[in-house]
Amino acid sequence: MDLELILSMANATLRLATPLLLAALAGLYSERSGIFDIGLEGKMLAAAFAAAATAAVTGSAWLGLFAGVAVSIMTTMVQGFASITLKGNQMIAGVAVTMLAAGLTTFLGQTWFGQGGRTPQLSGDARFERIILPYANELSGVPIVGPIYAWVLSGHYILVYIAFLAVPATAFVLYRTRFGLRLRAVGENPKAVDTAGISVTFQRYQAIFITGILAGLSGAYFSIAQGAGFGNEMTAGKGYVALAALIFSKWRPVPVMFTCLLFGFLDALQIRMQSTELPLIGEVPVQAIQALPYVLTVVLLAGFIGRAVGPKAGGVPYVKER
């Protein structure tokens, strides 16, 4: 393989890992606080639509991003109200929210823009620009470091950098702050937290608020950064891949990043490998690579390679003793 191919694959990996990373970190806050979240896909879809619709109307990508995040938070709060306050089934709440987002986005898209559920093509300020890091051109001549800096790290949308900065931030919040300690505690042993006089309910709502923000960023990335406008089902199951990544990395922030990079790489590989022959193996079916993240997660969950044990109180609504 030549250098250029490696660099472009690395670039594509970062690009494709970003929405997964944002969504997986979103899920991390929720699940670490004891709320299983299989509604990531729905929040991303709702955010993608809201972002594209707002950007199309106002012509501002930043307003679009803001709207996407706001809608994602609202969706999360509906799900949270069902799972935290009403103590409903968290799985069903997730399924319902995803379905609601899938139906409403297409429906409202068709009603408002009349283009078969798509939003108008975005251009100019309505879409995020790629950011060229300082001195990228000047440094590209430097051996090894130069091309990596110029062609892999530079030239991404701002959300890509936000996503990767969110990893150390999440690790710090989770392991080094009082908020993080409490968040992990309500996910493992809510009764102990309650006994210490801290509201489990409020703590969980705070956690899913962050989930809403991150899932909103992830959704907006699809429609106003990577793509130029919203299309039906545009998140295409990436919310579930993110969920798989979260489980695969055993609910820890730094491994989440590496898993998302791995899954992003598989995605890039899958695009690159369409109908190319490999030496020895022959042609690898694209579908095999597409299914790989899911298969890996199942294998991990089954405990054949390591063991993935989620937060102990996950999926169980907290009922105060009377």
Binding site: V78, S83, T85, G88, T98, M99, G103, T106, Q110
Partner: peptide, 25 residues
């Protein structure tokens, strides 16, 4: 023509939400 078939999906999602997850309401 303004009410697309996705409306049905919305109804279905709301039914799941209310009967499945918001029973406590």
């Amino acid at each position: 023509p303004t009410v697309t078939v996705e409306m049905i999906e919305v109804i279905q999602a709301l039914i799941i939400l209310f009967t499945g997850a918001m029973e406590g309401l």
